[in-house]
Design a protein around this nucleic acid. Structure first.
Length: 259
DNA sequence: ATGGTAGAGGATCTA
């Protein structure tokens, strides 16, 4: 079973690249972030033509998350427990795909350490943990995937020195991520690649990609039962090259399916 | 020169 997470930074703008990449990589499940699409605009039929059933939580201009599956999709849940209902931003969607529980998240950016959005980010992360505790058990097949907007350690950024005092690397954010993982989740990519220099996001500005100035902020956290069946993990940097790329590369894992 | 780019939407806001 192959599962991908990809912040596409507008599904409309990424349509051609998304279709090209998906046909080539052919994941069973795809978690999308930043669809930036109204609910009624989501291309359910076109995705069905590619073999994917999908569930979308969209709000238009910003945010927007979706789960695509070609192994079935049931028990779709939109948002987080403890959220504000209809006023909640479109940052989380969950479903069961072929016997595996999948949670797709787009964690708030935080903007700066002094910004209210930074406090919102930390609160959102604690709500995500409550959401996991309420809806799942650590001993089941669970994948929590998405754009976390946190670089877990200094290994995950191009220059810790250049990022002192910035969001994505602050201790409270990293603590919140560790607390989330205490539910029983492991950073799947790090099982295969312990080294530095592996990133999933590069700023569109200043030629950051070509200068290798990136961060690893997109990942798939997996429960023990999935971890024990992992075959490989990969960040496809090629998707960040060429015409009209997203600023994020897709991250994919493959594991033996449920028995 | 407090800079740069991309996306949405139609002026700025977000990242």
């Amino acid at each position: 079973m192959r599962v991908t997470t990809w912040n596409v930074n507008s599904l409309n703008a990424r349509k051609a690249r998304f279709i090209e990449w998906t046909c080539e990589a052919s994941p069973d499940v795809i978690c999308l972030q930043e669809t930036k699409m109204k609910p009624e605009a989501f291309p359910y039929l076109e995705l069905e033509g590619m073999g994917y059933e999908s569930a979308h939580f969209g709000q238009g201009q910003w945010n927007g998350v979706a789960i695509l599956s070609r192994v079935g999709i049931t028990n779709v849940k939109v948002g987080l427990d403890g959220g504000d209902g209809s006023s909640e931003e479109a940052r989380a969607i969950s479903a069961n795909c072929g016997g595996v529980s999948v949670v797709c998240v787009y964690v708030p950016n935080g903007r700066s350490l002094e910004d209210d959005h930074y406090r919102y980010k930390l609160e959102w992360l604690s709500k995500l943990k409550l959401h996991l505790e309420k809806n799942y058990r650590p001993d089941q097949d669970l994948v929590v995937a998405g754009d976390f907007n946190i670089a877990p350690t200094d290994l995950d950024v191009w220059s810790p020195e250049a990022l002192i005092g910035c969001t994505h690397v602050s201790e409270p954010e990293r603590d919140a991520l560790r607390e989330l993982c205490e539910f029983g989740l492991t950073d799947s990519l790090r099982k295969f690649y312990p080294q530095s220099g592996i990133y999933s996001w590069w700023d569109h500005r200043g030629g950051a990609f070509h200068k290798r100035q990136g961060m690893r902020i997109d990942y798939l956290l997996v429960s023990k039962s999935v971890e024990s069946r992992l075959k490989w993990a990969l960040i496809d940097r090629n998707a960040r090259k060429g015409e009209k790329p997203s600023d994020h590369a897709p991250v994919t894992i493959e594991f033996s399916p449920p028995v």
